[in-house]
Design a protein around this nucleic acid. Structure first.
Lengths: 336, 336
DNA sequence: CTGTTAGCGCCTTCAG
DNA sequence: CTGAAGGCGCTAACAG
């Protein structure tokens, strides 16, 4: 129903080739005809069909972003970064939420084909080995955001370092009884929580601190009810004086659980999160910041580069993490 | 580079028409040939090009979701609902974040065309009047999620009622000094905050309660620093004993601001939010729940219906709001 | 039942 | 500089 290039050509009294040329800003058009064609285009409110164009040139003007169980705000922030640069570059972005453990490989492989998109962003999603190898096949270029896989351009942070920084912050404040609460809600991801926990353990042992029994509460998202986990912690004979949470989301809940029992934060319990969501700042939550929006934006830019061949197809970029001390942590006993 | 339908036809020793027929499950194919073709398809790992198909049938297998400044978790939850049903129906979804006040009309109009998608979901985005009229043009069908516009199928809630319910909850608990804190971060939306505030005012006056000077803090997102707003409130000679926030996000900050000055929640200050985000439950936040995920899912389903003509193109559906009382509200002075 | 053919809308040679 | 024609991958209408 919308006008086609032929309609425009007809009305302007030129051939479709000419219209196509003015559309693509080819210099091979006289100013006169160009002007005439452009006028007609305005008149008819003509917009070239992206479908026709894509089929013809063999490449789409869309990027695909694959996320998993998009429940977290961190995914949202990354997404914004992606959308902003994609949009600025004139690309649409298809958002795909993988929620089936079993055939996500198929889902992703089917999505990442030249007829659906020109490139893919795997956000916190780890392609299975088969897929990584098959990438040589008919897949479009891909970059990993929030994860690292050999052979694929990736953007990631040092989760272990992050966990260590959070813990060291507490140690420096004088804490000795430090617990760890976290989940690994990701089922096809990189399990950052495990690495953060390693960092925690490392920092503890480096400081000669021991981790008491029951001081580590981890589990699947659905099973780890952070509230309960925190209560368990607080019920111990020797409860922790501080806890490092694997994410701001959990840190918020830990703090709430504590306050609900009359335990003050940070006076009686210090809490550190991870991510530095927008809300963290408003809640005064101490946390390990990772560049969320930036990782999305930079990842998208990287993909664009790879797509046009101006970037190596196997760059690995580590984004910085940084401790942000706010008011949810203090020396044991309060008063900082 | 990927195999085409012609390749398959050739290898299977049949015509492209036949391959197309088995692809589309036409009954007009003998079991024998069908089997042979399918075998070849597997062998070659052939997948039909969505591009070719779309161009041919004249309609895409993609939905477009338009959001504005996707910063809130509520948008995220709605999005999940959309993705789930779209994906189940075999549709891709393009996510478009409008972030330019000026030409969002153009952006949206260009996006909502048959060559880019088969239907559009405007999430908390209000199409300008021009656009609504122009919908008769070459636009694809559209449904509004989280808003109501005449002439377009819409899904919405009664924001005024919600604001009223939140306020009445507080009133029933015995509060008389109730403040309102909210923002209207949306620049092209339906300004739900205004309606919620109206509901608040209505409830107050219905109860014969007066709203003191300075008890209403509203403004643009960037300018309304909730933390400051709360402090202003608490600095008043006669500070409120309760506040209704226009969203859980702000409620969380209000509560934090209070606690930071040693004001207990809910003993010294009751706080009600709006939305019932996933985190609200874990924080014990009393709030007015609106069905976020459901609105996305149902909106998408509705769009699918409209697209296949099985639904009136101008249905209005009001989703229910519900007060969820938790532990951030109590009678003035605490206890209970 | 099945092969062939004509488009779908656009870009890109290839002659003029 | 510009018009005409071929082809992108697929579906649908048409002969067999």
């Amino acid at each position: 129903m919308p006008p086609t290039i032929a309609d425009v050509a007809h009305r302007a009294g030129v051939g479709v080739g000419t219209v196509s040329r003015v559309l693509n800003e080819s210099p091979l058009v006289s100013d006169r005809t160009r002007a005439r064609v452009q006028t007609v285009i305005k008149e008819m409110d003509y917009r070239p069909s992206s479908l026709g164009r894509s089929l013809s040139v063999g490449t789409t003007r869309v990027l695909a972003a694959v996320v998993q169980r998009m429940t977290t705000s961190s995914a949202l922030h990354r997404l914004r970064g992606i959308l902003d640069v994609a949009s600025a570059a004139g690309f649409d972005v298809i958002l795909h939420d993988v929620n089936d453990v079993d055939d996500y490989g198929v889902q992703v492989r089917d999505l990442l084909r030249p007829d659906r998109c020109a490139g893919g962003l795997l956000v916190s999603v780890k392609p299975d080995d088969e897929y990584v190898k098959a990438l040589a096949g008919d897949s479009v270029p891909v970059v990993i955001i929030d994860g690292r896989v050999d052979g694929l351009p990736s953007l990631y942070i040092d989760d272990e370092l992050g966990g260590k920084m959070a813990t060291e912050h507490l140690i420096e404040l004088g804490h000795e009884r430090i617990a760890f609460v976290g989940d690994w809600e990701d089922f096809i991801g990189f399990r950052p929580t495990e690495k953060r926990r390693s960092g925690y353990l490392e920092a503890m042992s480096a400081a000669g601190l021991s981790v008491s029994d029951g001081y580590i509460k981890t589990g699947l998202h659905e099973h780890l009810v952070t509230l309960d986990a925190t209560n368990d912690l607080l019920d111990l004979d020797v409860p922790p004086s501080a806890v490092v949470a694997s994410a701001d989301y959990h840190a918020m809940i830990v703090a709430q659980a504590a306050r609900a029992r009359g335990i003050r934060v940070p006076e009686d319990l210090s809490v550190v999160g991870f991510d530095d969501l927008e809300i963290a700042q408003h809640l005064g939550l101490s946390t390990v910041r990772q560049p969320l929006y930036e990782s999305g934006a930079r990842g998208a830019r990287m993909l664009l580069d790879v797509m046009e061949g101006s970037a190596s197809s196997s760059e690995h970029i580590e984004m910085p993490v940084e401790l942000v001390a706010r008011t949810s942590t203090s020396v044991p006993g309060g008063t900082s």
